[in-house]
Simulated assay, not measured.
Amino acid sequence: MPFVLAAVAFRKALGAFDWVKRHYVWVMRVGGTMMILTGVLLLTGAWDSLVAQMQTWSNGFTVGI
């Protein structure tokens, strides 16, 4: 049974990789823009404020498992 599930998951992953291959240029542009934005936020110190705000938002969150 694990091998059947692995084969199904692998087949679905190939479909996702196919989408990435078709849109490779846009994936690279979005990824590069996100890296530049993160770098600017780190340099300006705004990253720390953003992370602190997200920690307060998720303060009461518990995992359902």
Results as ranks from 00 to 15, higher is better:
L43D: 03
Y24L: 09
W47M: 07
I65G: 06
T44Q: 01
W26Q: 13
F17Y: 14
T56F: 06
D18H: 10
V51L: 00
G31V: 03
S49M: 07
M1Q: 09
L5E: 06
G45Y: 01
I65V: 07
I36S: 07
L5Q: 10
M54A: 12
K21G: 12
L41E: 02
L37T: 11
A9D: 07
M28P: 02
L42C: 11
G45P: 04
H23L: 06
V63A: 07
R22D: 09
M28W: 12
L37V: 15
F17D: 09
T56R: 13
G64Q: 01
A16R: 10
R11V: 11
V4N: 09
V30L: 03
G39A: 02
W47V: 04
R11W: 13
D48K: 04
F3W: 14
V27F: 13
G64H: 05
V40M: 01
V51F: 01
N59Q: 14
Q55A: 05
A52R: 00
A46V: 06
A46H: 07
F61T: 03
V25T: 14
T44A: 04
A7C: 06
S49N: 13
F10P: 08
H23W: 10
G64R: 02
W57Q: 11
T33H: 05
Q55T: 05
V40F: 03
V25P: 00
L50T: 07
A6R: 15
R11P: 01
R29K: 09
M28Q: 13
F3M: 12
W19F: 14
V63W: 08
R22G: 09
K12Y: 13
L43N: 06
A16W: 11
V20W: 08
T38I: 03
T62D: 00
T56Q: 12
V40R: 02
T38K: 04
M1N: 09
S58N: 12
G64N: 05
A6Y: 15
S49W: 09
F3V: 13
M34A: 14
V40P: 01
G31M: 03
Q53Y: 14
D48F: 00
Q55M: 01
S58T: 13
R22N: 12
A16C: 10
A6Q: 15
V20I: 15
D48C: 02
D48E: 07
T56N: 10
T56W: 08
A52N: 02
Y24I: 08
V4T: 11
L37Y: 13
M1V: 11
L14T: 13
G32I: 00
W47R: 08
S49Y: 12
G15F: 01
V51K: 00
M35H: 10
R29L: 05
S49A: 09
G31Y: 08
G64L: 00
V8Q: 06
S58F: 09
T33C: 04
G31R: 04
G60K: 04
V25L: 02
G15L: 01
S49H: 12
W19N: 14
M28L: 14
T44N: 04
M54D: 10
L43F: 07
G64T: 05
L37H: 09
K12V: 15
L43Q: 05
F10G: 15
V51A: 04
L43M: 03
P2Y: 11
L42W: 10
H23E: 14
W47Y: 15
M28V: 15
A9L: 05
Q55P: 00
A9R: 07
W47F: 15
L14G: 13
T33A: 10
N59K: 14
F61P: 00
L5A: 12
A7M: 02
